[in-house]
Design a protein around this nucleic acid. Structure first.
Length: 400
DNA sequence: GGACCTTTGAAGGCT
DNA sequence: AGCCTTCAAAGGTCC
């Protein structure tokens, strides 16, 4: 990678000195610093030409808010009808007390967001899209429930059908999902990107670049989302979704130890597809990774790097990972300029699935990271969190 | 038609 | 208690 490793670019999460830390559940990360590698990674991807790796457009710009607000007038969000085209997250045929819940249905109400002082209400209620036109359960539900035949039709009949079929009640959106929904269109428009995977990477970075206050808004919205969801579906639990017979993803069905991650993509990124193995180019199982797994033979010795700083530890981890992959490819993962490296770094610098307390230690100094002896799974999971997520079998990176 | 990718966060299960 | 897994959204891509 010919990218400058340095550049002196460091990204600081603003708002580090906010007087009122958000609730622990909000998972607001502490001010984090991305090292030069990550900075380079942020700036690297030619398909995401953000100057300096940062997104040049402000969050929730007035135009955006106005445009978004114009999408929904109060009449557009009848709770009992999705015929307006607004994508209701909840089956509209449910007995919802609009009087009691109207203030809670911020996703249905353009005013609640503003009432919260969040300025996000409109953004959470984007105009209907082709897949977004019917319900919160636009895709998988339509797929699973077969209700996609007439998504834009009146909801009453369709919902009755869904009710008969015990419609799939989706999880409430978390803060990041809300943020994604709001910002995706902008990113798509500005980057002329359409692939969600790439867009989500950008959104993930931008999410971390958000200030605490900005993130707090989304956490608050997510919290209300959950509250509303609980009110609407008191008996619902996320487990119900997993038990509804919904088809598991293929990667989870595989019995290859869950080690079917597309490693080349993660390691080399979209801009280095020439480094990918052939199966990866065809979105198949990564043979390199499978070979590495076979070579690893299940014994791994990942030594915990002495965390001098989050960045240095990230670098060490990346070097370890690059060492682990050195037998698979010529280009190690030391530049962090690939989405994989960036992903790893970005995830390392993120609260990820471990929402930190407001005063959470930086990655690597977190008691969970340093004080506790890390298992291989832990370390690999931290190094490649999403990869670990996609690997039920907890793939092991051989470093020894 | 469905899985996959990719992101973060929430929740539940498991150890 | 802590870790792990799954699923939320999105749309292009591949099989």
């Amino acid at each position: 990678m010919g990218l400058p490793a340095g550049g002196g670019l460091s990204l600081f999460c603003p708002g580090g000195d906010l007087g009122q830390p958000p609730p622990a559940h909000m998972g607001i990360p502490p001010p984090y610093q991305l090292d030069s590698k990550l900075a380079a990674g942020l700036a690297r991807t030619p398909i995401y030409p953000f100057p300096g790796g940062t997104y040049p457009y402000p969050m929730l710009s007035p135009e955006m808010s106005q445009v978004a607000a114009s999408w929904h007038t109060p009449s557009m969000y009848p709770i009992s009808s999705a015929a307006s085209g607004f994508r209701s997250p909840y089956p509209t045929s449910l007995p919802i007390s609009t009087s009691s819940l109207s203030s809670e249905l911020y996703r249905f109400s353009p005013t609640l967001g503003a009432g919260l002082g969040l300025g996000l209400g409109p953004a959470l209620v984007p105009p209907p899209s082709k897949t977004d036109i019917f319900t919160h359960h636009s895709r998988s539900q339509e797929k699973s429930s077969g209700s996609s035949d007439k998504p834009s039709d009146g909801t009453a009949s369709t919902n009755n059908k869904d009710q008969n079929k015990k419609p799939h009640i989706k999880k409430p959106l978390n803060a990041f999902m809300l943020y994604m929904k709001e910002m995706r269109a902008k990113v798509v428009a500005e980057c002329t990107l359409k692939e969600s995977a790439a867009i989500n990477q950008i959104l993930g970075r931008r999410w971390h670049a958000l200030g605490r206050e900005e993130q707090a808004k989304y956490y608050e919205l997510a919290r209300r989302e959950r509250q509303l969801h609980m009110q609407l579906y008191p008996d619902w639990s996320s487990r119900a979704n997993t038990q509804r017979g919904k088809k598991r993803k293929r990667k989870q069905e595989t019995t290859d130890g869950g080690n079917n991650l597309k490693k080349c993509r993660a390691r080399y990124g979209l801009d280095q597809q020439n480094q990918w193995c052939k199966p990866c180019r065809r979105k198949k199982k990564c043979v390199r990774y499978m070979e590495a797994l076979a070579a690893a033979s299940g014994t791994v010795h990942l030594q915990m790097a002495t965390p001098q700083s989050p960045c240095s530890e990230d670098e060490v981890k990346l070097e370890e990972l690059s060492d682990a992959s050195s037998d698979e490819a010529d280009t190690p993962l030391n530049s962090a300029s690939s989405p994989g490296g960036l992903s790893a770094l970005s995830s390392l610098a993120s609260p990820a699935s471990d929402p930190p307390p407001p005063a959470r230690n930086p990655v690597g100094t977190n008691p969970r990271d340093a004080n506790n002896p890390l298992s291989v799974n832990q370390l690999t999971s931290q190094s490649w969190p999403r990869a670990a997520q996609a690997r039920p079998g907890h793939e092991v990176i051989s470093v020894s």
